[in-house]
């Protein structure tokens, strides 16, 4: 267990370092924007507002909030303090809603949609890829071209195709949103049923793309592994093929798990764009609103949340991986 603790601490350390770094980037990059963001924002907000003292008050509020008139270091610590208190400021485009409030309602939509979809897609994709590598022949010949084509489709493309075919043409699923427009979020059966109906299509669009990519990766890894020297050696010692296949797939699954951790960022990025196609009320849609409304606090907070989501998911996968791969403990022990 000592080896694993070392591994765990190592990964935890990495997690914290990346977190701090991501935090700094998130703070710095938007501040490179030329001009005074607060002035630009206030002038937009104040459109149609004739009360000059009102405009002045808003300006003062933002300037205080972001500390734009203070030195950059001080601004940074102000930002750290605010974020630590869950205070991301007010949303410009949905004033006077606080950003934290806007995000709180959208983050769960994204988490509940993307993580299950990515995990399901990963599992199915790996199973299919392994089968294709093992069975070869017809199964492989049908599955592979489809997988290659599907995985080359951008995530939003898959979303649009599913939407047009199943929602607009066949009318099996609703066209947009996370629940019916005529409903208010509540714990009624009607609402839950509506949520489920709206959930399926975005879910499948993410699952399908994930299947394509994973199946291809798994297949080539498995083919490599099936030709590995230890497979040949084990065969010549009289070990049954079924047992050897067991070795192979266990060994191939391990890098696929780390692969998932590494590609999680890209997958979530694609899925956020797919959310937009379905007007799903998650982070992707919030981000789109932020961008079209030039809502800088909202964008900054959304990207921060997405980064944290990816980092945490990554960390969890690495930790689980350490438990599964026997070599980790062995290698860390010495």
């Amino acid at each position: 267990m000592k080896g694993y603790r070392k591994y765990f601490l190592n990964k935890l350390g990495w997690f914290l370092v990346t977190f701090v770094f991501a935090f700094i980037l998130n703070f710095t990059l938007p501040r490179l924007m030329p001009g005074d963001p607060v002035a630009a924002i206030v002038s937009r907000l104040a459109q149609g507002m004739s009360n000059a003292t009102g405009v002045q008050a808003i300006y003062q509020q933002y300037a205080d909030l972001f500390g734009t008139n203070k030195p950059i270091i001080e601004q940074f610590f102000l930002y750290v303090r605010n974020v630590a208190q869950g205070n991301f400021g007010f949303s410009f485009s949905q004033y006077p809603r606080p950003v934290a409030d806007v995000l709180a309602s959208s983050i769960w939509w994204t988490v509940c949609l993307q993580f299950p979809a990515i995990i399901v897609g990963w599992l199915i994709g790996n199973t299919l890829g392994a089968l294709a590598a093992y069975l070869r022949g017809g199964f492989d010949k049908v599955l592979m071209p489809i997988s290659i084509f599907v995985s080359n489709l951008p995530q939003f493309g898959m979303a649009i195709i599913l939407l047009v075919v199943f929602s607009i043409t066949l009318k099996w699923f609703p066209v947009a949103g996370g629940y019916g427009f005529d409903l208010m979020p509540s714990f009624s059966w009607e609402f839950i049923w509506s949520v489920i109906k709206h959930y399926q299509l975005p879910f499948f669009s993410i699952v399908l793309i994930a299947i394509g990519g994973q199946a291809i990766g798994m297949r080539s890894m498995s083919i490599y592994e099936l030709n590995a020297d230890y497979v040949k050696y084990a065969r010549f010692l009289g070990i049954k093929d079924r047992k050897i296949i067991g070795y192979v797939f266990r060994n191939v699954m391990l890098p696929q798990i780390t692969g998932l951790a590494l590609s999680l960022g890209t997958m979530i990025g694609g899925a956020l764009v797919a959310e937009i196609v379905f007007s799903y009320p998650g982070l992707g849609y919030t981000l789109l609103n932020g961008i079209s409304g030039q809502d800088y606090p909202l964008i900054s907070a959304s990207t921060m949340i997405v980064t944290v989501m990816v980092l945490v998911a990554n960390f969890v996968i690495e930790i689980l991986y350490g438990l599964i791969d026997p070599r980790i403990k062995a290698a860390q022990a010495d």
Partner: peptide, 19 residues
């Protein structure tokens, strides 16, 4: 390793927006 874990599209969004 830092940039492997920090999603590149987040950077892409931040930079593009900043520009």
């Amino acid at each position: 390793n830092l940039f492997t874990v920090i999603p590149s599209f987040v950077l892409l969004i931040l930079i593009s927006f900043s520009i």
